[in-house]
Amino acid sequence: MYIVISGNIGAGKTSLAQIISEDLGFSVYFEDFHSNLFLKDYYQDMKRWAFATQINFLALRYEQIVHHMLLSKIPAVLDRSIYEDREVFAKSLYEEGLMTKEEWIVYDKLYNLMVTHLPTPNLLIYLEKTVDELLRNIAKRGRDFEKIPREYLESLDKRYKEFYANWHFPKIKITNDIYDNREEIIQRIKNALYNAVY
């Protein structure tokens, strides 16, 4: 069994993953952005580094799932999904001209080869926040490389809404504060998992 948490940059995915791990006893796998060799350069020059950054994330995500999560017998939660890598980030970069057609074809081929070997998550949790909330959260965590334009977050926000609408497997959307509503949110997740499994 595994859960994936989906949401824009700064939505609170890592915090919710920690809560699920603490309250439900799931093992937790965080997005390893420190291991992405191109991320810092990407935020300085998106067109130059878009393809390399997305390929690196794809490889890191696949390695995390196959070499760690799937070998464990403990239910798991991931604080980002491999599916939104393609449907939100890579597709956005291609459609906005930051990734060439040839780069998109290579990326898409690799993605499809990978996901055919992966089990579908038992539940997708979508954290939806306003762009103002995202900007505040990003500023709070103070990562030097995350100088993210508002327009970019707005573009991703639209794509996340489409991604969630088109996800045809068990899913829930959370818009309220995860700390103020912790018990309620955990109960919603339990109910959704029960319905998904039984």
Rank of each mutant, 00 (worst) to 15 (best):
V106D: 13
H168M: 05
V106Y: 10
F51S: 04
A76W: 13
Y111A: 01
K73S: 06
P149E: 08
V131M: 01
W167V: 00
L110V: 13
V88N: 09
L134T: 02
I105Y: 09
Y198G: 06
L118W: 08
I178S: 11
S6G: 08
L24E: 12
M114L: 13
E96S: 14
L118R: 02
I9P: 07
T100D: 14
E184P: 09
L71S: 04
L124W: 05
F51C: 03
Q44N: 13
L156G: 02
S21G: 15
I65L: 03
Y179H: 15
P75Q: 02
F51M: 03
E162M: 08
E133M: 07
G7H: 11
L58Q: 14
D108V: 07
F89C: 06
N56L: 04
R141N: 10
A165Q: 12
T116L: 07
I189F: 15
V131T: 06
M99Q: 10
E102N: 11
D85E: 15
I9K: 04
W167I: 00
L39C: 03
Y29I: 08
N137Y: 07
D144I: 06
Y111E: 06
R48Q: 12
G7R: 10
P75A: 01
K101L: 12
S6R: 08
V77K: 05
E184R: 12
Y198W: 11
I186D: 10
R48N: 06
W49K: 01
T175P: 01
L16V: 11
N181Y: 15
A196V: 00
M114G: 02
H34C: 09
P149K: 05
S6C: 15
W104C: 06
F163T: 00
F169V: 02
V4T: 15
D85K: 07
K73R: 07
Y62D: 04
I178W: 15
D41K: 09
I125P: 01
V4Y: 07
I172D: 03
D41M: 04
P149L: 01
S155W: 02
